Simulated scan of single mutants.
Amino acid sequence: MKIRRTTLEDLDEILIIYADARAFMKKQNNPSQWGEDYPRRELLESDISLDRSYVCVLDNRIVGTFYFEVGVDSTYMEIFEGEWLDDAPYAVIHRIASARDSKGVASFCVDWCFNQHPNIRIDTHRNNNPMIRFLEKNGFMKCGIIYIENGDERIAFHRIK
């Protein structure tokens, strides 16, 4: 597998990955985290134009996608019912998703991110049990609650390499 920046030509493929991820979340009793249409094409186009969107490729096929940025995330400015592991500069991962029939993609993507930056924050919906298990298995610590731009609650995780 390899990681590269997403291009506009990748959009249709990653939209399918996100649609499959939403269907999976619904089956896992988590229908509201991404709803019917998150992330929207316009958001992904913005991520691409800002060089913050990445794809994971295996045998010339996109098998995963995610947002990665080194820097302050406004939704992480306040944390409730806990605290971050430290106040050092950090990177964030958002919107990580893998193709329906793939294995090990999310771990590969997270490992790649840690090779870019040793301090990473991420969040997920409290009903996203597969993601919570994945994060805990991959060394992330549950730190508290954050609220995203629309006011929805998320569980905040943090890992320092």
Rank of each mutant, 00 (worst) to 15 (best):
M1K: 06
K2G: 05
K2M: 06
R4T: 04
T6Q: 03
T6V: 02
L8D: 08
L11W: 02
L11M: 06
L11A: 01
L11K: 02
D12E: 13
D12F: 07
E13N: 12
E13G: 09
E13S: 13
L15D: 06
I17Q: 02
I17F: 03
I17C: 01
Y18M: 00
Y18G: 02
R22K: 07
A23F: 09
M25S: 08
K26H: 10
K26P: 01
Q28S: 04
N29E: 06
N29V: 03
N29L: 08
P31I: 13
S32L: 15
S32C: 08
Q33V: 01
G35Q: 04
E36V: 11
E36T: 14
D37S: 06
D37T: 04
Y38H: 10
Y38V: 04
R40L: 15
L43G: 07
E45H: 05
S46P: 03
S46T: 15
D47G: 02
I48Q: 07
S49Y: 06
D51T: 11
S53K: 00
S53G: 03
V55K: 05
L58H: 12
L58T: 10
N60Y: 11
R61F: 10
I62H: 00
I62F: 00
V63N: 01
G64L: 00
T65I: 07
T65N: 10
F66H: 06
Y67F: 09
Y67N: 00
E69W: 08
V70E: 13
G71K: 11
G71L: 03
D73Q: 14
S74P: 08
S74F: 10
S74H: 13
S74G: 09
T75V: 14
T75C: 14
T75R: 12
M77F: 06
F80M: 13
F80K: 15
E81C: 13
E81G: 11
G82A: 10
G82V: 11
E83W: 11
Y90E: 04
A91I: 09
A91F: 07
V92C: 12
R95K: 09
R95Q: 05
I96G: 00
A97K: 02
S98L: 06
R100D: 06
D101K: 14
S102G: 01
S102K: 01
K103S: 10
K103E: 07
K103H: 09
V105K: 01
V105R: 02
A106D: 01
S107H: 07
C109K: 00
C109W: 03
C109Y: 00
D111C: 06
D111T: 08
W112N: 00
C113H: 05
C113A: 12
F114Q: 07
Q116S: 05
I120N: 02
I120W: 03
I122T: 05
D123P: 02
T124L: 04
H125D: 12
R126W: 14
R126G: 14
R126I: 14
R126E: 15
R126T: 14
N127G: 13
N128K: 02
M131P: 03
F134N: 12
L135C: 11
E136N: 09
E136P: 06
N138G: 08
N138M: 08
N138Q: 09
G139V: 12
M141K: 15
M141Q: 14
M141I: 12
K142T: 12
K142I: 11
Y147N: 05
I148Y: 09
I148K: 11
E149N: 12
N150A: 13
N150D: 15
N150F: 11
G151F: 12
E153P: 04
R154Q: 05
A156D: 07
A156F: 12
R159F: 04
R159V: 05
R159D: 02
K161F: 06
